[in-house]
Nucleic acid binder design. Structure first.
Lengths: 342, 342
DNA sequence: TTGTAGGCGTTATCAG
DNA sequence: CTGATAACGCCTACAA
């Protein structure tokens, strides 16, 4: 209670500095700094005394001061559309781990659905003077690009492809993915199709490419059910209901913008006694953890998120550490994974 | 290509400082600082010139220098077990949004499964001199506690309850939750039960409390299926299979440590023609987005993650901004949500 | 309303 | 191997 607070205040000893550690170890502040950054430059005995002093005082270096002095923050900021979307969070984990093992910490923020917010977020992140920055997607305001360029740090745009990245780009083509799915469906003999798409620009690009190719290959006009807001299981169920009730679609294949929506369709179909893939076939997107475990197992599009995070990290690190120039844009592709739902 | 890189290097103008902005606007650096932190302390005309200069130069304040000078980083760090687990990420989103609207940014890291890593992570985070820190859970090494105490910043531990928090604690009792589920099951007339539990200390505490209470209420010995590693849909399916095959359980209620596992059980049961809740009843944990949309709709335990994030933020802010002392520990409780699976 | 001076805790650069 | 000393870019007094 109050007691606790008092105790804490008492303990809130003024922060221990290198100078204090040095005093205790009988050396100057600079020597402490050296002992920490390159122990080999300090005599064994001094090193020992410094380590003891650090242990005794509970010294934790002040990275803020270090960053200011060295002009290196060892901080990398990342902007993703949503942290609760597993697609992005698994990718970010991979990215983080690779950056962390190179000594960088990640400052993560959600950009959400409003692209207008991104600019302010970028500025806020830039004020922390990150050594590099990761952005999701390739659509950024002119002012955002200016800020980024002005910062003079490596920037990697992920999850999409462009011929004119701000700096680096690692991703895959959403149009290609849509087309690949259309071709897959066509080869499986489907001539009727529908799409269920969440409110996401990249998802819509996949949908458009899918529909265009499917129709070009002789398929009938592709029905569509669009969702506003993020994908949820219930939205998948609703979408199937709408498609069926509005009689715009009765048989064929449904291409969803995410595995979650596809899963919703599986559930709704099961309840209605619609057989999958007998009556209706379903294709998801993302190849989530659970895609192989739902029933029937979901045919979907796999994007290697771990590889994506790794490559993004590697390219950034190449810029940061070595002085070599990685390829500005790298296409990691995707893969249609056939299972039972189509 | 190389061209791009050259361009970037060219543009990487040495960082614009407040002094530079001031020079351009015909005022001193301090005035620029004031114009930014409290525009009312600067004359309208000066303000205009400064704003023009900022616009023209693309100046972005250096939060590093600001933090060093003011001894306030406006940074709050958060440690969660996993970012890909929606339970934590939704909570963190709520926390982040509340902190952000108060002007704080969040530095997020995953602690993962190895509690030994936590200590190093805490130290790494502390080196950024956060103004406050959020920790998941109440189990921290003695050294970790020392570090935290020594930092002299507000700390909030979430997702659990303890009578001796490091500083603040906002959460709920996992034992209480387990017991509440046992009572719920008992009132529904079940006398046989099993648990499916992921490798998580808190989940196991819920399980123990559930089993103890269930048996105390006259139920038969509770069967168990434990999973090592994180919860996945497939693990839920496997668990049901194991429970059935090993003949340790055939009818009754299954309490899962997460909705995901429960969902796996639903799927496996459907495939095997086991009726839910006719033959077997299922109770999840977490009340995820999809819990109401699976079939049958999942009975589960709801934890108000948004409220949790909000309260954690509020209590931290109380320490940070006002000088009043929030209650050291606040129990936000939980709620058994009855739907169709039990 | 504006400016000057000093300092925040490091790292970089020279000396010794 | 160790130590002065000068930045780093801003904020907090205190003055004008």
């Amino acid at each position: 209670m109050g007691q606790d607070r008092d105790t804490r205040s008492g303990i809130a000893n003024k922060r221990v500095t290198m100078a204090a550690v040095g005093r205790m170890a009988g050396v100057s502040q600079v020597t402490v700094s050296r002992a920490l950054s390159d122990p080999s430059k300090v005599s064994a005995d001094t090193l020992r005394r410094i380590r003891e002093a650090i242990e005794a005082t509970g010294f934790v270096p002040n990275a803020i001061a270090g960053a200011l002095a060295s002009n290196k923050s060892r901080l990398v900021t990342a902007l993703i559309p949503s942290i609760t979307n597993v697609v992005y969070s698994t990718f970010v984990r991979s990215f983080s781990e690779h950056m962390r093992s190179a000594g960088y910490q990640i400052l993560l923020s959600e950009t959400g659905f409003d692209p207008a917010d991104e600019e302010a977020l970028i500025a806020a992140h830039l004020s922390r003077r990150p050594d590099a920055m990761l952005l999701t997607g390739i659509q950024h305001s002119a002012q955002a690009r200016r800020l980024l360029l002005g910062a003079g740090i490596p920037v990697v745009e992920v999850w999409d492809l462009t011929s004119s990245p701000i700096d680096l780009c690692v991703g895959f083509s959403h149009s290609d993915a849509g087309r690949a799915v259309a071709e897959f469906a066509h080869h499986k003999g489907y001539t009727q199709a529908a799409t269920v798409t969440a409110a996401d620009e990249r998802a819509h690009r996949r949908r458009s490419a899918f529909a265009a190719r499917f129709e070009a290959l002789g398929g009938q006009r592709v029905a569509r059910a669009d969702i506003d807001g993020p994908a949820r299981l219930g939205e998948g169920r609703t979408a199937l209901r709408r498609l069926l009730d509005e009689k715009v679609f009765a048989r064929g294949v449904i291409f969803c913008s995410s595995d979650l929506l596809a899963h919703g369709i599986l559930i709704e179909a099961q309840i209605r006694g619609i057989r999958i893939p007998g009556d209706i076939a379903v294709i998801g997107f993302g190849d989530q953890d659970y895609a192989a475990d739902v029933h029937p197992a979901l045919t979907t599009v796999r994007v290697d998120r771990d590889a994506l995070g790794q490559r993004a990290a590697e390219h950034l690190l190449a810029r940061l550490e070595n002085n070599d120039t990685p390829d500005p844009v790298t296409d990691l592709g995707f893969e249609v994974v056939q299972r039972d739902s189509c």
